[in-house]
Design a protein around this nucleic acid. Sequence first.
DNA 1: GCCAAAGTTCGGAAATTTCTGAAGTCTTCC
DNA 2: GGAAGACTTCAGAAATTTCCGAACTTTGGC
Lengths: 163, 163
Amino acid sequence: MSDKERWQAAERLALALTEGGLQRMSARALAVFLFTDAETVTMGDIADRLGVSAGSVSGAVKALLSVGLIERLPAPGSRREHYRLRDNAWPTLFSTQNTVVRVMLQAAETGIATTASGDPAHERLMRMRDFYQFLLRELPGLLQRWEQEQHPARHSGRGTQPA
Amino acid sequence: MSDKERWQAAERLALALTEGGLQRMSARALAVFLFTDAETVTMGDIADRLGVSAGSVSGAVKALLSVGLIERLPAPGSRREHYRLRDNAWPTLFSTQNTVVRVMLQAAETGIATTASGDPAHERLMRMRDFYQFLLRELPGLLQRWEQEQHPARHSGRGTQPA
DNA sequence: GCCAAAGTTCGGAAATTTCTGAAGTCTTCC
DNA sequence: GGAAGACTTCAGAAATTTCCGAACTTTGGC
């Protein structure tokens, strides 16, 4: 019974990921990577679990690889390719939003360049630009703080690489 | 000519906002609120500018109001309602992502509750939970820092000198 | 070298989202 | 208090997204 709840939670997560910008099928596949009991999964596993076609899984896995959320394992001469969630998947996912921030910033700057100082639009666009510049300044530090919490108080030297 | 560039920038912004989770029409309307030269706009202005129906504008404005990105002005006995971008529109927009974060956190916790300690899934879900808990802790402070930059050095005694 | 299984690609169907247009409601002005 | 303009609502059309399934390519085993 708790297994059913578990995959319900997985589907809810997939929904949230979709809200966050992922394609539907990519989101569902990512949920499998998270909630599966196995260390690694194959495309067949995902297709099986979700009850979808191999073609859909292929596209979803490709997309997840391209954004760095999962990785292909150095396959030990197996027929099937094995994949797993990358260690830093969540910071990576969070960081993809930076590209949205950059586009917003760019749009604001273009707008500023095409309006005269003193125009209401000019003022609004400058406020917008300031905010997204602020975000772009702050986000890297945020992720650094996360890294530090992960590697508690070693020497302050270079962090250990997460596999 | 630079006016054309300007509205092109507006449409690009709308695209980015769509990526960020807004409905298409709401995104385009918000772009109008930003790039218009007027202090306030009416629904008719928006419909005119975007070349869409009054019905579409009505829905878009309603959505933007509900998330607090725009406000209706206390109309001085006018026939048309006037609206404008709210001052804190950008922090507000950014904050809406918190709800996504909360859903992710919730899904992780449900998953944790349905797996045994030691299971690979259990480990993965705990890492995920930790990350989103971290975000939820950090984001309020981030917005506070923004507020402080906006109201420079009231009587805090310390000379703020941002980068 | 040949077979079989795994993975990829892509055209088209299905489902979902999005917008319009027309009818209805409310408000202001005279 | 009647008329006209502004706004809302909603059913259906249009457009976009999403997924499947079948044909094709690649890889590993013998």
